[in-house]
């Protein structure tokens, strides 16, 4: 294992920001794994730190493929993590909306450019992603459909679901999108939590990444059996909005199988504790996203169901 500084940035008064990478094996750039780009992505950083441990072990046991280099960046934006902020603290910009970056641009454009320079040329890229809404996901892997990466590869992770997302204009500045434009086959792994550690989901994500690496011939390792991944387009999932506002109580667990018209949650008046809304599913399927906050606004997407 080699630990190296991939990009540095000075601050007026804080210690220099050093983006640290861990590389394993040598030779052809095979896989890069990126963790936290936002300051609250603790779970994402944790999964990467677990990958560092796994790869150390595999490297020591001679289980890495010949002519194969793997890079892990647990955390790009620990400056914000240490301040308790999600985005870059000075200007509230999101590093994951700055790719491919610009080395003569604003600070987060420079960070994105510096990191992206190190991430180019890999055959595969995996980002530990978080979602822009408060909530928890069933661990799954997502592919932004640029036409470059074969959706069939989603099955190599052995997670229950692989979701293909058609990029929207605001997705075109994310790492995942730009990786593919620069010809890296890129995937986003969602490991349930963001600003807290979910050990079970972290294990599942680590095993999924190891399974992918094994299936792609990058390492030789045994993992617990995975799922026969169901690959589907995001448009095939059902988004359920809250019909009222108030206190939110979910009555289903993430991953639950539900039938059409089942009650998934209820909304309660915050002053009088009367039920002001029931959330029923209009379709049968599996709950793969659930809103996770005691307060809910009207029209908030509170569940997503894989039909």
């Amino acid at each position: 294992m080699k630990k190296k500084t991939l990009f540095s940035l000075k601050s007026p008064y804080r210690e220099q920001l050093d983006v640290i990478g861990y590389s394993f094996g040598r030779g052809k750039k095979a896989l890069a794994i990126v963790g936290a780009m936002r300051g609250n992505e603790v779970q994402q950083m944790y999964v990467c730190s677990r990958m560092v441990q796994e790869l150390k072990r595999l490297e020591a046991d001679g289980k890495l493929a010949e002519n194969c280099e793997i890079l892990v960046i647990p955390c790009v934006n620990y400056y914000s993590m240490n301040l308790g902020k999600r985005f870059w603290a000075m200007d509230n910009t999101d590093i994951n909306r700055m790719f491919p970056g610009y080395d003569q641009g604003e600070t987060t454009q420079r960070i994105a450019a510096g990191v992206f320079e190190q991430l180019q040329g890999y055959e595969y890229g995996i980002q530990l992603a978080s979602f822009y809404q408060q909530g928890i996901f069933l661990p799954h892997v997502k592919l932004m459909d640029t036409g470059f990466t074969d959706p069939g590869m989603l099955k190599d992770f052995g997670l229950e679901f692989g979701i293909v997302r058609k990029p929207r204009p605001y997705d075109t500045t994310t790492l995942n999108y730009n990786w593919q434009i620069w010809e890296t086959k890129a995937f986003s792994v969602y490991a349930n939590a963001t600003d807290e550690i979910d050990e079970k989901a972290a294990c599942e994500a680590v095993n999924a990444i190891l399974r992918f690496m094994d299936n792609r011939g990058l390492v030789s390792t045994k993992t617990p059996p995975g799922y026969r991944t169901v690959v589907l387009d995001e448009s095939e999932t059902e988004q359920i909005q809250a019909g009222a506002a108030g206190l939110f109580f979910s009555t289903v667990e993430i991953g639950a199988t539900v039938e059409k018209d089942d009650i998934l949650g209820r909304i309660v008046d915050p002053f009088e504790c009367t039920t002001v809304g029931e959330i029923r599913t209009p379709v049968s399927g599996t709950v793969y996203f659930a809103y996770h906050s005691p307060l809910i606004n009207e029209k908030t997407v509170c569940f997503k169901i894989i039909k």
Partner: peptide, 26 residues
């Protein structure tokens, strides 16, 4: 707050929105 509080995306990156999306998209 420059953006919409408690929502990650800049409002001026969400247009035209959708009637069936998140609160901000609506």
């Amino acid at each position: 707050t420059r953006g919409i509080p408690m929502f990650d995306l800049d409002m001026n990156r969400v247009f035209p929105g959708t009637k069936n999306g998140t609160m901000v998209e609506v």
